[in-house]
């Protein structure tokens, strides 16, 4: 069944990691689906939400509700933003006029790997990536959305790829949005726990389905001169074909 997929590209993917978005476009096109994108949407409203300023968050979030109201399926490149739309919008709009809209949006919104595996039933894109990689579970994807097996299933079908799990795969990397700026020392310390564990796998790549974590992890890796590179799952699935 051909679906019309509306991509939600969060700010950091748009500006720092557009290649992730491009990879998603290429993958969904390969699978024969139609794509849509709302250029006016950049933010899901998570920063003010996390800071406790829910009124301000709603100002951003209503635009999302408006723009995506008639979308068929919404796919997001980040587990964290996905959790915002799927889980936290319900809290944000609880007892407001848009409660039902928020719920409806949540139901048709999916994180990238979840969508591929559970909605499209695809676990093999036909990608090749002849490298050993390690995986980072983004917390929101893992714990708010329950995504754990999906990306691993996708990676297991990438030709030549060897997944070496790190001990701290499911430990928070320390990004946490505003937290990373409010408590930089803790955030970086947590990042170091992550990078240390990643280095122990003796791989060159950390792959994840959450670009925001990767931004932070890459920052720590580069400062430590670890010589590892972070990749979004979509970038890996985009290789070799």
């Amino acid at each position: 069944m051909i679906m019309k997929i509306t991509l939600f590209i969060p700010c950091f993917v748009d500006s720092f990691y557009p290649q992730t978005g491009r990879a998603m476009v290429r993958i969904f096109e390969k699978l024969g689906h139609t794509l849509d994108y709302k250029p006016q949407l950049t933010c899901c409203g998570q920063p003010p939400f996390n800071a406790g300023y829910w009124d301000e968050s709603r100002k951003v979030a209503v635009k999302v509700l408006d723009a995506l109201g008639d979308a068929e399926r919404v796919v997001i490149a980040s587990g964290s933003c996905g959790a915002m739309l799927k889980v936290f919008y319900n809290e944000l709009f609880k007892d407001t006029l848009r409660e039902a809209d928020a719920r409806a949006l949540g139901e048709k919104t999916f994180e990238f790997s979840d969508f591929l595996v559970n909605e499209l039933g695809v676990t093999d894109i036909g990608a090749k990536f002849p490298h050993a990689v390690t995986w980072h579970d983004g917390c929101h994807g893992l714990r708010e959305l329950g995504i754990k097996t999906e990306p691993r299933a996708l990676l297991s079908n990438v030709e030549g790829l060897e997944l070496r799990e790190m001990g701290e795969a499911a430990t928070c990397c320390g990004f946490g949005g505003l937290f990373s700026a409010k408590f930089p020392s803790i955030s970086v310390a947590m990042g170091q726990v992550k990078t240390k564990s990643a280095v122990e796998t003796d791989t060159k790549y950390i792959v994840s389905n959450d670009g925001s974590c990767l931004m932070h992890i890459q920052g720590v890796l580069d400062r430590e001169r670890r010589g590892m590179k972070c990749l979004h799952l979509a970038e890996v699935l985009n290789q070799g074909w």
Partner: peptide
């Protein structure tokens, strides 16, 4: 500073996803 005291900050890409999409 709060970011760069302990880690590197990523570069904004010259072609954002929005640019890419507009071209597409």
């Amino acid at each position: 500073y709060v970011w760069t005291a302990g880690r590197e900050f990523p570069k904004v890409k010259r072609e954002t996803f929005k640019d890419f999409w507009a071209k597409r």
